[in-house]
Design a protein around this nucleic acid. Sequence first.
DNA 1: TTGTAGGCGTTATCAA
DNA 2: TTGATAACGCCTACAA
Lengths: 343, 343
Amino acid sequence: MPHRDLGARSASVKDVAAAAGVSLGTVSNVLNRPDRVSPETREKVQRAMLDLGFVRNESARQLRAGSSRTLAYVMLDAANPFFTDVASGIDEAAESADLSLVLCNSRNSAERELSHLALLEQQRVQGILVTPVDPESPMLDEVARRGTPVVVVDRTRADQSFCSVAVDDVLGGRLAAEHLIDRGHTRIAYVGGPSHLGQFRDRLQGAREAIAAAGMPEDSLNLVETAAMTVVEGREAGSRLAGLPARRRPTAAFCVNDLLALGLLQHAITSGVRVPEELAIVGYDDIEFAAAAAVPLTSVRQPRQLLGRTAAELVLDEATNAEHTHRQVLFTPELVARSSTLA
Amino acid sequence: MPHRDLGARSASVKDVAAAAGVSLGTVSNVLNRPDRVSPETREKVQRAMLDLGFVRNESARQLRAGSSRTLAYVMLDAANPFFTDVASGIDEAAESADLSLVLCNSRNSAERELSHLALLEQQRVQGILVTPVDPESPMLDEVARRGTPVVVVDRTRADQSFCSVAVDDVLGGRLAAEHLIDRGHTRIAYVGGPSHLGQFRDRLQGAREAIAAAGMPEDSLNLVETAAMTVVEGREAGSRLAGLPARRRPTAAFCVNDLLALGLLQHAITSGVRVPEELAIVGYDDIEFAAAAAVPLTSVRQPRQLLGRTAAELVLDEATNAEHTHRQVLFTPELVARSSTLA
DNA sequence: TTGTAGGCGTTATCAA
DNA sequence: TTGATAACGCCTACAA
C-alpha cells in the first residue's frame, strides 16, 4: 500500500487546459502573454493551475527555446573561502543579468570536474565558469569548440584560446618575498604544493625574482612541498620545518595560500614557536579568517569578488555578443601586512 | 562580421545519422545500447559524432525520461564553512547514488531561495535539500505537495510534514553554558541573532536551562543581539561588550556560531582583552578555523558531513521508495574544549 | 541488425 | 480572443 504515487506525472498544460475547459494554446498564453487573454479566462486557468499543482516543465521549455537561463561555476574546492568569495562575485553578476547560478564542486578531482562539465554542456547552460584542476585539460577546449562559452577563473592557459581572469601570481610572489626580505629575513621557507600547480610555480618564480633582486643566494629559499593546500597540510609542514636544525631553519615562511599559513601558524603556536619573532608567516588570498587568526596573518590579497564578477561578464559577453573576442584579464594583488610578520 | 555563429544549433542525433549514413534509431542505439549495433556501424557513428561535435541534449532526454539525474542543495550561506561541510557530505552520498549535485546559494535571502526552489522544481530535480531562511515558509510545503521530495537540513519544522536532519540545539546550548558555569563564570553573554532564528532561540533555551539548573539568577545571561552571524558582526558585538561598565561586563561569551566567536575573539585581541582570563569564549559548529584561531576556540561540534549524508539518504528514499515515511533525525552535539575557555 | 513512427510538454504561428 | 497544429531532440516500441 504505497503512500504516494511515485510515478505520478505532474500536470501538463494539456491537463490544465482540460480542467479549465479551454484550449492548450490559451493556457500557454496565460503563462507567456497574460495580456492577450480575457480576465475571466485567465482567472479560470490560473485556478486550474493551482488546483492541479501545475509546474512548468523546464526541460520542455528549454527544448523548445534552445537554451537555458542558467550559468554554472565549477569550483575547485568549495571548502576554501577564497572560492566561495569568487562565487559570490559571479552570483552578483548573474543576478544582474537575470540568470541563475548553479555551483558544482569538483573537490580537486579531474574526474568529477569532467562529469560536471559534461552534464552542464548537455544541459545547454548559457556559459561555464571553471577553476580547473588542470587548466590545460583538453576537455575545456572540446566544450568550448562545441559552442558552450567557457571562462577560466583564477587560472591561465598557455595559449589564449579562452577568456580568463586571474591575478598576477608572479607579482604576488614577489611582493610576499620582498616584504620578508625587507624585514631582514635571509632564510625563507616556500610552503605549498603540489609543485605542478601553476600558482605554486608562478608565486615561486616571483619569490625567486625578489631574492635575486636583493642579491641573495638562491638557496635562501627553502622549498617545503605539500600534498595539498589545506590547513592540515600546513600543520604538517610546520612539523617538518620544526625538524630542521636551528641554524638551517628558516625564520620566515611564505605559504602559497592562507589555509596552509593558518595550519602552519597553528603548529607554531601549539609547539611554542613565537610568531613573528621566531617565525614570520605570509599567507596568500587574504581570506576573512586570515585577519582573525591566532596571529593576524600577513597575506597577499586578491580581488576575489571582482574576479568572479569579471569572469561572469566575460562569459555573458561570449554568450551574447557575436563580436566577442577572448580576453585574458590579469588583476594586481596587494600585500596586506599584519602581525604575523610585524614584530 | 560575426566571429562565431551564436545561434548555431548544435548537431542532433538526426544530423549524426545523416552524416554517418544510418538511421536515427541506430544512432540512439549507439548511445544507449552500444552492444546492439555492429562494430563497424558503431565506429562510423562515433566518428560522425566526433566530427560534428555532437552533444546529447539533456532537456530532450529528460523530457522523454520524465526525471533528471540531479540533486540540489539550496544553501543558506556558502561562505560559512559549516554549510560547505554539510554540502560535501551530501555530495558524497549523491556520488554513491550516481547523481550529480548542484549547489544554489540563497545568501540568506528568502527571495533568492524562492527563485532557486522554483527553478529546481521546474527542472524536475530528483530532490531538493534546503537549509531555509525560514523553515516555516509555505513554499516548502507547496513544492513538496507538488511532488518534489524536499528535506530540511539543519533546521526543523514545527509540524512533521518533512524529513529533516538537525542537531539538538537545546542540548548544544546547554552544553556550552554548563561548560562556562563549570569554569566559574556567573555573568555570561549570549551573542547572536537575529533573534527570530530557531537556532538562536533553541540554543538560548538550552543556555537558560543550564543557568536555572545551576540555581543562578536568570539575568546571569546577557543577551547581545547581532544582525547576522558573521565575523564582522562578532567584532561589532565585541565593541558593545567592551562598552559595558566593568562590574556588569560578562566574563564569558557564548556565541551562536563560530564566525561570531571569531569576530569577538578578534576584537578582544586587538583591544587587549585577554582570552580566556578576562573573557572566555565558546563558539558553535567547530568549523576548521575554530581550532586555528587566535586562541583556539572552544566550540560545540556538530556532525556536519553526517548531517549532509543523512539528508541526502532521506531525500533519495523519498524519491525512490513508495513506502517512504517522513523522519526527523536529530543528532547530538558535543562540546570541544580548547584554550578560549581553559585558562 | 537496422529503420520507422509516435510522443514527452512547451511555445509560436496561423487561422477562425 | 481563442483554438488547432507543428516543431524542438530524444528514446523506445515495433516492424522490416
